[in-house]
Nucleic acid binder design. Structure first.
Lengths: 294, 294
DNA sequence: ATCATTTGATACCCGGAAGGCATCATGTTT
DNA sequence: AAACATGATGCCTTCCGGGTATCAAATGAT
């Protein structure tokens, strides 16, 4: 394999068409340059220059090789620059997981903010439930998650993004929508309930269980995605407790009713990340966010 | 400037993630390899590998640099070949990028056509996704691409080669294969979907998103190569939307189902090239093609 | 025709870089 | 705690690349 010095030498000679001047340009003397080119030609296996003891010309193979040589040099000069940019967090890829619910509320503004702080970093978005985000953060497939508690604060660091209240999704025209007052637990006694999955959406499940004594009899479905829940409500399969941002989904034939004051616990959405940060772009983001918060 | 040996050393270590094995592969001992990498890191100005006294991992800067290093090595290996070809009297080399999907349909006939128009030009084929082809065309590493929209028509000129319809790839014996009718969007409601990468395979991604109401919930993988998608389908990981030519891949345990008429949008394959043409062989090809089309 | 000039190639020498061997340092496993 | 695994370091030797001096061939002026 040839060396970069040989390429640089060849480029210089090809441009000057004169060994002496090329050598001067390269801050060396002519003899080693001559040998460099000879060696290069031997490695390439083709004559690149025609020496005619009075002038130097490029062969057609030499012209083609000059192209390649320039390309190689340009690439070789750029490579460390990009590597340094990534190491400093100024560019690269940030893999962000988000839950369906957050996608309809905070994700847009958050992306705008990210674009302000790390504009050269590509954001790779993946919609995942909290559990998937946690395992993604552990394996390093994900850099940042937008998810709900609980998660292990030993391994994950986090920042509270916002709280929102829970509301009840009911099919349009349902008797409860006619109530003049806020909803209470009593109102659900005989209503079929679409429940959160205790494994996939543990946070909501625990929350709802805490809010009202469940009557398992009435649980008609257990699902993990808010969107799915609301769709089922729209289809008249029952009621569901969903975070307020679900109202932004724009699903037809569903109404959202506020819960009795005090009973409507609030749910949280956190930005969270693995404490063992490996992605410089994330390190930079967090550092700049710290500054912004103080 | 670093040397090709350092690049080769880095690539070996990055692939083996083990200095000893990498050294063995390079027919050298471990100590000089360690120093080689250290020197390379010093030159690049960034940590490329994380040594943890038990295992070696790539930093994100290292990942990016690995990419560049591979490109450099590939380019460096190809350069002498093209030079020799030209020196041996053939009039040039045309470097053609193609997508895996096009490789199974149009590539064969196209090569025949090229051989008719520019018989003395060697064709250098590389399988690349659309995004890689575009960057290759920009840097001049590629002369001609066979790829799908979108691309910037300011910098690239193109010619539509053909259209084909999309089909659904399902694991053999899947319930949907028993359906007597064509598939509709409703049929996927609860099916895991193997999705195209929004960055690497933007065209397909946009198309599929357009075809069926976003149900991110069911996306199990995002991949960029059609072949990978079909393999994942074969492995029973889910369904996938692929162009009709994927049926030619001959992968076992996959069936392809047509989409409901009207819903199955057609996808396009274009031949495209950089408007700033530098390769005379490409100029000749295009000129002769113009003649043929008139 | 001869000789000075130009320009790339060759001969020879020297310093530094890269590889090999032996060994160290550190973390893991039994 | 001892053996093991694995990357880093120290030291020696070899070889490659650059420098100086010189050669070789072609040109052109007298």
């Amino acid at each position: 394999m040839f060396t970069f010095d040989q390429l640089a030498g060849f480029i210089a000679v090809a441009e000057e068409l004169h060994f002496g001047r090329a050598a001067e340009r390269l801050n060396m003397t002519q003899p080693p340059l001559s040998r460099q080119i000879q060696k290069l030609e031997k490695i390439v296996g083709a004559e690149l220059l025609e020496r005619d003891n009075r002038k130097v010309t490029l062969t057609s193979a030499g012209e083609a090789f000059l192209d390649e040589a320039r390309r190689l040099m340009a690439l070789a000069e750029r490579a460390p620059v990009t590597a340094r940019r990534i190491a400093s967090g100024r560019s690269g890829v940030l893999r962000v997981g988000f839950t369906a619910a957050s996608g309809f509320s905070i994700l847009g503004p958050l992306l705008g903010e990210l674009a302000g702080i790390i504009p050269d970093v590509d954001i790779d978005l993946q919609e995942l439930v909290t559990g998937e985000q946690l395992s993604g953060l552990l394996t390093g497939e994900l850099d940042l998650g937008l998810a709900r508690p609980p998660f292990d604060s030993e391994t994950f660091d986090s920042h509270l993004l916002y709280r929102e209240s829970m509301v009840v999704a009911v099919p349009a025209g349902h008797p409860l929508t006619l109530l003049a007052r806020d909803i209470t637990a009593e109102d659900f006694k005989d209503e079929p309930l679409i429940m959160h999955s205790p494994t996939q959406a543990r946070y909501f499940y625990d929350l709802v269980v805490r809010m009202l004594p469940i009557r398992h009899a009435n649980v008609v479905h257990t699902v993990s995605q808010i969107l799915t829940m609301v769709s089922l409500v729209a289809a008249g399969r029952g009621l569901a407790f969903v975070p307020h941002s679900a109202t932004l989904l724009g699903i037809k034939d569903v109404e959202f009713l506020p819960l009795e004051a005090g009973r409507g616990e609030e749910v949280e959405l956190h930005a969270l990340w693995n404490r063992r940060i490996t992605n410089p772009a994330l390190a930079r983001l967090l550092r700049d966010l710290e500054f912004a918060m103080e």
